[in-house]
Design a protein around this nucleic acid. Structure first.
Lengths: 220, 220
DNA sequence: GTGATCTGGCACCGTTCGGTGTCAGTTTGT
DNA sequence: ACAAACTGACACCGAACGGTGCCAGATCAC
């Protein structure tokens, strides 16, 4: 299931336009994924057809089935592409904050909301189109969400008193924080006259720091 | 668009099995909505067909188009049915908390997670299946989410210092809180060996009270 | 009882789309 | 130059589904 291997696995083919067979196929795959991000992210997954994807990519259906089982496999690839980029951006934003926890959190939030604002296709694919498609995609969604939860735990790890809170509690809290940021972003991009980005970043930051304040060693 | 009126608007028809024409049609409509909740909530919306809905309801396609434009209109009706019940349950749970804010919050959370746990079709329809279907459904989703945000604002209203925080900030915070609870619930019902309900309620409560603590008059 | 009305089941049509095959024309290696 | 390989475009098939119409039988009003 998912991605299917090329009918020709070896590199015995000719070169064509200065590229070997593997490279040519990989280029076609990339073009299809890019087209999928464009189509799924603007018109939605439901109304998308294989034909539409291929024409956007400038290829024909034949090359679609060279790289993918079906539209669901392509959705998974587009989803991975989008979320990978998003995660990288957020982690880079956290890194820009240096050592200070608060600055790291703010940097991560800034990078997240910037990414979402700069490319509306990202939130649409990441938060809307993937849900309810099927079991396979739902699993991917769940795994990705968990990876974001893990990222949150890593970032806030040093600031929490692990002896005072059991692991599952911290994990559920981090899940809630991810959900809070996601929902704020979702409503933000959907609103007709949205708040400035600094405003939503500030609100999200309020929630995160309020919860973080509960998790540190309690002065009492 | 959406629900379509009956071909016979007046009550001039015969009685049949002890019911007038309006009543019969209304009963069929209810059966269709119930069937939709069952099918959408177990097999999902995307794989559902009009035929499947009708056979589950014990009716034929002909009666489907008597009450609905198409499957999207039925999804909207099922969505409204589910979210109305959920909202009622949560508000009733909050009411059980009496006057104490903390007890109200806890009551609302308990009712919410109970509803979600008792009927898995509810979270599936409310949080998964409706997303990415189309503009019409997306609007409904947005409106419902806003109504939950409003409900949160009403419940926590008395505890916040409105002079210290601008309205849009409170609104975004409430959006984040709704998102936090939703995400916790979503991951909870999807996990293979879930935490006990008291545990997730406690985690959600931690987030809510942490943020609420920031919003009251600050002793400083 | 008898005719009008309502019901449910079925057949049917058109469209859309996934998926495969074909084929002429182009590029490459020799 | 020539054969082999590659590309892109199109045609085609079958399945699934939305939507409509029809009809035999059940139910009701009179």
């Amino acid at each position: 299931m998912g991605v299917v291997s090329s009918p020709r696995l070896d590199d015995t083919g000719r070169t064509y336009r200065g590229a070997g067979p593997r490279q040519r196929q990989e280029e076609r795959r990339v073009r299809l994924v890019d087209a999928a991000v464009e189509v799924f992210g603007t018109s939605g997954y439901r109304s998308a057809t294989v034909e539409k994807i291929c024409s956007t990519a400038g290829l024909t259906k034949r090359y679609f089935y060279e790289s993918f089982d079906g539209s669901e496999a392509l959705l998974l690839a587009a989803y991975a592409s989008v979320t990978d980029r998003l995660r990288d951006s957020v982690l880079r934003g956290a890194g820009d904050g240096g050592a200070d926890l608060d600055a790291r959190v703010r940097g991560a939030l800034t990078a997240f909301f910037r990414s979402v604002a700069d490319d509306p296709r990202i939130p649409r694919i990441a938060f809307q189109e993937v849900l309810g498609v099927g079991p396979e995609v739902d699993n991917a969604y769940r795994r990705v969400t968990l990876s974001f939860v893990d990222a949150v735990l890593v970032v806030i790890g040093p600031a929490v008193d692990r002896t005072a809170f059991p692991d599952f509690h911290l994990r559920t809290l981090a899940t809630g924080l991810v959900g809070a940021v996601l929902m704020i972003a979702q409503q933000w991009v959907l609103s007709e006259n949205p708040q400035p980005i600094e405003s939503v970043i500030g609100s999200a930051h309020t929630i995160l720091s309020a919860v973080l304040g509960q998790l540190g060693p309690q002065p009492m």
